[in-house]
Each structure stands twice: as structure tokens, then as C-alpha cells.
Amino acid sequence: MAPHGDGSNAAEEAIAAQLEKRPISTVVIIIAMQTEALPLVDTFQLVEDRDSVFPKDAPWLWYHGIYRDLNINLIWPGKDPTLGIDSVGTISASLVTYASICALQPDLIINAGTSGGFKAKGASIGDVFLASEVAFHDRRIPIPVFDLYGVGLRQAFPTPNLLKELNLKAGKLSTGDSLEMSSQDEATIFANDATVKDMEGAAVAYVADMLKVPTIFIKAVTDIVDGGKPTAEEFLQNLATVTAALGQSITQVIDFINGKSLSEL
């Protein structure tokens, strides 16, 4: 860290302001499941790069291409090498976020995916939310200051024009590594004032904040957490339909971003 009073902070802020006025060029979309990823690969006509920028033994997949004036990169963590299922959760999300930023130097990250929603906060199946802030709900460290670190509250990059233009719903996102919700998770989610919950968002936010990359979070509701139906059953029942709604929203977001600077979002 630079010492106080040497002008470094002012210089960094000036550089950041200049970057926010530059047209967005490179976008990274981080998405956890193959079912969510492949429709976007088709929509944007992305190509899987076999000569990946990632370590050769990592299962992460990189799809990229040019869509309008944007360099689009879609990163999917791939299949678990042992079990053959989607590599969901915070560990995979944080790893691919870090690797993607280092390799691709994006102007903007979009963390897209499905989520649970709370009807008490106005969520319905198929709703698409643009998260205003993200936090964890399963990192319980009951020691002063460490408790705040565990929650890890971070703001999403503000996009008031995008929110208004596309008529997306706004809400707070809470992240944990379990699909089901324990009573302790529920209490923290309530404290986080969350409308939707997922298994990746806050991990992406942690890395993106560390490396100073603007990030937005777009989540489509597959299941109503406080609706009385078994979460896994409702999630699988609605996954295909909600994934289509998510893909449509992501396409609209990309179309809106095209030709704009960060400050215009």
C-alpha cells in the first residue's frame, strides 16, 4: 500500500475515472452450470478454445468470440473430474474468477446464473434480478470484525441505466455452498436482507473487488425458498424454462452494454 499523502490515491482515482469513460471492450461471463452456459455459447456464437489460457489439468472451459463490438468470454468451471457433475460453489467460482481476470483482463465481469428466491421479498419463478449487493450467509465467525469478514458484504457495480432500460428486478444476493437452507443460514440471509440466494456470487465479488474489476450479478429464480416445496425438486423442475429466461436477459444486457462505457451503465 502506498503511504498516505503521496498522491497515489488521487492518481489511481483519476485513472479509474478515465477507464470508466472508455467504451467497454472485453466482457467475461462467469456461469456455474453447463445447462446455463451452452445457450449463451450458441446465442453469441462463441467457440471453445482448446488451447486454453488456463492450467492444462483444470476442468475450466473458455468460450470466446466477437459479438457486435464486444469481445465476449464465457467461463464455465466444467465438470468435476471425479464425479462428472457441474463444479458449482464458491471454491470453483473464486478460482475461475481469479484465473479469468489474470488471463483476460476484462473491463467488466457478469456473474450470471440461476438462484433461489424469497416470495416474502417479492420473488417469483422466472424473475430475473440484478443484484445491488452480495454477501455470504454460511461463513459464521462470531468474533468481532471477523464476523464482518465472514459476511463479506460487497456492492455490485452500479448500473442504474441498465436496470431502468431492461426493467429488471433489483434485490440483494446472498451466497452459500449449500442448495438447502439451514435455520442458521436463514437467519443470516434475513440479516443480509436478501431477495435471492445462490452458490457463487459473493465468491466472484470477493475476487473481483480484490483485483478492482467492475462486476454485475444477474440471477434468475428457479425455486422459491420460502414456498413450501422441496428445493431440489423445484429447482430441477424449473431449470430449463428459467435458463431460457436468463439467456434472454443476458442477451439484452450484452446488447445494452455494447458501445457504452462503464459510466453509461
Rank of each mutant, 00 (worst) to 15 (best):
M1G: 15
M1Q: 11
H4M: 14
G5E: 10
A10S: 12
E12G: 10
A14H: 11
A16C: 09
A16R: 14
A17Y: 14
L19H: 12
K21M: 14
R22V: 11
I24M: 01
V27D: 04
I29A: 08
A32H: 03
T35A: 15
T35W: 12
A37N: 05
A37H: 03
L38S: 12
T43S: 12
Q45H: 11
L46Y: 09
D49P: 02
D49V: 02
D51F: 08
D51I: 00
D51Q: 05
S52E: 05
F54H: 06
K56G: 03
L61N: 08
Y63E: 09
G65M: 06
D69T: 15
N71W: 00
N71R: 09
N71V: 01
L74K: 06
I75V: 12
W76C: 10
P77A: 06
G78E: 06
K79Y: 14
K79A: 11
D80I: 07
L83H: 13
G89Y: 01
G89P: 04
S94A: 09
S94N: 01
Y98A: 06
A103E: 00
D107H: 01
L108D: 04
N111H: 04
A112D: 02
S115V: 04
G116K: 08
G117M: 02
K119Y: 10
A120H: 10
V128A: 07
L130R: 02
L130V: 08
A131D: 01
E133I: 00
E133V: 01
V134S: 09
A135P: 03
F136C: 09
R139E: 11
R140I: 15
R140Y: 13
I141N: 10
I143D: 00
V145I: 13
D147C: 09
Y149L: 13
V151A: 15
G152V: 02
L153C: 14
A156Q: 06
P158G: 10
T159Q: 10
P160G: 07
L163C: 13
K164S: 15
L168Y: 07
A170F: 08
G171W: 09
S174V: 10
T175P: 13
D177T: 03
S178T: 05
E180S: 14
M181Y: 09
D185C: 04
E186V: 07
T188F: 01
T188G: 04
E200C: 09
V204M: 01
D209E: 15
D209N: 15
D209L: 13
K212V: 11
F217E: 05
I218C: 06
K219G: 05
A220E: 03
V221H: 02
T222I: 06
I224W: 12
D226K: 07
G227Q: 03
G228V: 02
G228Y: 04
P230T: 06
A232Q: 14
L236D: 05
V242C: 07
T243Q: 02
T243F: 13
L246Q: 03
G247L: 00
Q252I: 00
N258M: 08
G259F: 09
S263N: 15
L265F: 07
